[in-house]
Design a binder for these strands. Structure first.
Lengths: 266, 266
DNA sequence: GATATACTGTTTATCAAGTAAACATATTGG
DNA sequence: CCAATATGTTTACTTGATAAACAGTATATC
């Protein structure tokens, strides 16, 4: 099928409106009064509010109010709140990427990708709260996917294998990003009030997680490793994120060897 | 600190109300009229609604109405909607676990865990839509964590290493579960209406994802692997989920070897 | 057994949020 | 110049969570 000669306008119609906006597929209006806002401005303010007060604080009225307009005015720019969320998500992905590395440094390049992704979750704690609608389809989000693929450009892998590795890395990055975010929050809240989750939970869980029902989990709850008290002393092998990540990289590495040498392992 | 002699009641006070309910930490009322509902019944109905019409369809009024009561009556049982969501999540984790395997079959046991987790996402497509509040603290959810730990019971790993491996497996399972869910949806929607995402997007993305801006992603979009058209023909190495999973298992395996043999690889 | 108490489910009432529709006003292509 | 098309605002509707007051009911206690 020859879809390659589809115009950007046509493409815009196939995408959800928010995605079309993110791609800049919107004919600038020819008549009518000058616009007093811009999509960038709106999304920027929304991100600002979410950074400050969380995603739940982002309402159409709040965003509009902080820009000095009424809620309904936003709908002249963005057709729905879901679209605003998509645009926020894409904005959070608008980060500078480090330069490419030589092919043999693929492990380090993958590490950079995972760190960079985790950093998005830390920089914008609300990022992980946006419901996932499906595969990424917005421009900056796709640049991040492209980044994930970059270290594999010279690997003898087919497209599905590459996508599988992207999934491996990105799902780990997401989960770790969320954990990291929660830990950031705990630190912040812990300094202010002693009211935070983890510590309280660990006492409760020790009373509830019985060895009979939870034979494998029990010792880990008792030791405090489950609720992650004393969060630092585990840095023997590198930090927590790196440990899991290196296992993934080892798994990838091994596959490459097997595929090249036909079964033998390094 | 000697937290072990905390009573279940005391523990309940430290947990969010929803979690306390999930653990059954609620003194049955001594006076007043007989209760006409039960928590199980409410949560069951909420799950039923979510299974049928999605998480957004679960409102206090809808749940109450389908049980023949008013919205406010639910608050006599569950203090807030967030608590209801936690209970739903826990209920979805109430699944039968396969019997333990001998230690040397740890790979298969981990596979079973990942498959089982993915199946939760498929059985309850709303499961992944529930916002994550932190680490699991409800009983069935923790049984699943215990399951994940089971294959590691005899491994020479410290608690943090075990938790890292759990994170590795569970984050992969979550991401793959969500993808699988979306694919299930696409199949369902595709048969009814041709209106579904993936296929439409792929045409649009081919027009937008230019090789200059997306050098690594472009070929994959063009081939259709990104939007996952022709979802089957990639079964050369086993199915899609297994491929990534085997890399994780290889990574774990290798670590075990290195740790035992002090650096050498199998 | 009477009654105060602690419950039950209901009714009524807020409040917030998303968004449709109608409106007055501002630009600009023809 | 003016019809057409925008813009931002006002008004209004809907849905959802949940607080508060209420009327009826079972039990503990006297």
């Amino acid at each position: 099928m020859n879809n390659n000669d589809m115009t950007r306008e046509e493409a815009g119609k196939l995408l959800p409106p928010g995605a079309a906006l993110a791609w800049g597929l919107a004919k600038p209006p020819q008549r009518g009064p000058k616009r007093e806002m811009s999509i960038d401005q709106i999304v920027g303010k929304a991100v600002e509010i979410a950074d400050r007060d969380g995603l739940a604080a982002v309402s159409m009225s709040r965003v509009a109010a902080e820009l000095g307009f009424t809620a309904m005015s936003l709908y002249r720019y963005i057709p729905s709140k879901d679209d605003l969320l998509l645009l926020m998500q894409d904005k959070a992905c608008d980060i500078p990427l480090p330069p490419a590395r030589p092919a043999h440094e693929w492990r380090e390049e993958m590490r950079e990708y995972v760190r960079g992704t985790v950093d998005i979750f830390r920089a914008h704690p609300w990022y992980g709260d946006i419901p996932i609608f499906g595969i990424p389809i917005s421009p900056n989000n796709l640049r991040v996917v492209d980044w994930a693929l970059r270290p594999m450009r010279d690997m003898p892998l087919n497209d599905y294998e590459k996508m599988s590795f992207v999934l491996l890395l990105s799902s780990y990055a997401r989960s770790y990003g969320m954990i990291q975010r929660d830990m950031d929050r705990a630190v912040q809240a812990g300094s202010n009030a002693e009211e935070f989750g983890g510590v309280h939970y660990s006492a409760a869980l020790r009373a509830l997680v019985k060895p009979e029902q939870y034979p494998s989990l029990h010792p880990i709850v008792v030791s405090g490793a489950y609720t992650d008290e004393n969060g630092e002393e585990k840095d023997a092998v590198g930090n927590d994120m790196d440990f899991g990540l290196e296992r993934i990289l080892d798994g990838i590495d091994q596959y490459l060897h097997v595929k090249r040498d036909g079964g033998a392992v390094k």
